[in-house]
Every structure is written in structure tokens, then in C-alpha cells.
Amino acid sequence: MLRFESVHFTYPGGVEALIDLSLSIEQGERIALVGENGAGKSTLAKHMNGLLKPGRGRVLVNGEDTRRKTVAQLAHIVGYVFQNPDEQLFSNTVQDEVAFGPRNLGFSPQEVEEMVRSALEAVGLQAAASEHPYDLLPAQRKLLGIASVYAMDTPVLVLDEPTMGLDLHGTRMVSSLLADCFSAGKTVILISHDLDFCAEHVERYIIMADGAVQLDAGIDSAFDDPGLLERAGLEPPQLARLARALGIQETPGTVVDFLAMWEKHRRRRSS
């Protein structure tokens, strides 16, 4: 689906943002891209839809070199939700805003209407469909930004800090939207500092520092190396830390996992 082959990228100012980075992402994977600010996460993600093109090496999207495609063409495959919705909202109504992406991709008016409806439903904004985007609360605008990319129904979805500024209700909306993506078999890549949120949704962690992938692993081994976590500026999700403190050998992602592991752990100790 997505392949990075020895990708180097240097910003015009001279900052080496990616150094000899190789990576492969398959259809349907759920990934968290984590690391400190400036570790190269966004730079990496912007290579996935051609916003940035590698200086050296190749990025392949569905087997095709991104250097031979425009961003608009790659938008059919990779949807990218930017962090700040205010840097994209421009329409007079919420539904027009959501329709913008699908229309650009060339879907028919009926299809666009259906996509807008289901995207607004996914983030709970159907009642606000004909309001002006800037009349919404900041958190609602954030959800609108997510819906406007989700509506494009791309096989890959990249979300940059999807939960930032969201309350419990908003976070739940994002969670259920992600669940829809997973059941549709989409590839989801979360760029986030909210590891507790990631832990509930992803199965693969790509930990970045200094422009390189430091570790690419599942939750069971992603948080084993304290030195690496320190360097990447990360703290394991709370449940993982709790499990460790309790002496549980496995690493849970969700509460359900934790309870199962805790039960097993207790039974083993008592026997």
C-alpha cells in the first residue's frame, strides 16, 4: 500500500527531517506515528500524499512513485486531516465544506450527497449541516475538519492530532469514526501525542526520533526500552504502566485487554 525506500528529505532551510527511512504499510493496518515535536512525523506523513517529495529514495503509493503524481491525484488514495481545521474551512455551510473533497475527486452529485450525509453522521454534525462553519464551536470545527476528509472515502486516512482540543464527546466521535474505518478495512495512521487514545485503536507503533524510525512494533514490545522512550520523549500509555507496576508480563492496550490480563495474572499467582 505505502512503501518508503531509503527516503531522505531536507527542508530548504537545511534541516534534515528524514534520514534514510524505509517503511512499509499494508492495507488495513492501524498505526500510531509517535515521537517528539520535530522528530519528523509530519514530514513523513506529508510524503504519503505527495505534499512533500523525497530528496533521495522513493515513496510508493499503491506501487506508484509519488514524484510522478500530483497531490490531487494522490488524494484519491490518501486522505490527510490537518491539525488545525481553521486552516482549511472556507465554505458557507457545513455540508458544502464536507462536499468539497468528494467533489474534487469527481464523485457524482448523488454520491457526494450520500458521502456528506454519512460523514456528518459519523461526527454527529448532521443537525448543523446548513450552518456556517465558523458559527460552530472550535471542537465542532475540529470534527468538521475530520469529517471533510473522511467523506472522501480514501483507502488510507492520516489524522494529525485528531483528539487535540476535543472533549469526551468529541473524542468518542473520533473513536467511533475510526471504528468505522477499521470495519471498512481502511489503513489508518494516527499522528498523536495522546498515547492513551492511540492504545485503544492501533496495533502498530512507529516511534520516530531524529528523522528516523527508532522502533516499529506492536504494543507488546513498543514500550520495553526506557532509554529509547526517553530519547523519543514518550511515556507508555497509562494502562501499560499500570500493568507493569502490577507485575503483569503482557502490555494491554484497552481496558478489556487489561482486565483479561489481570485475571490471568491473578490466577497464575494464586495457583
Binding site: 500530483t70 488524494a75 490537518f82 488545525n84 486552516e87 476528509v149
Partner: peptide, 18 residues
């Protein structure tokens, strides 16, 4: 700076600027 981010986010939604 802001215009560049906006340009990126609209291109990512399939806006053809070329």
C-alpha cells in the same frame, strides 16, 4: 506561512492548483 499550510490542506482534499 499560513497560506502554505492552507494550500497543503486543500491540495490534500483534491484541489487541483496546477
Amino acid at each position: 506561512q499560513r497560506a502554505e499550510t492552507i494550500l497543503d490542506s486543500q491540495r490534500a482534499r483534491g484541489l487541483e492548483t496546477e
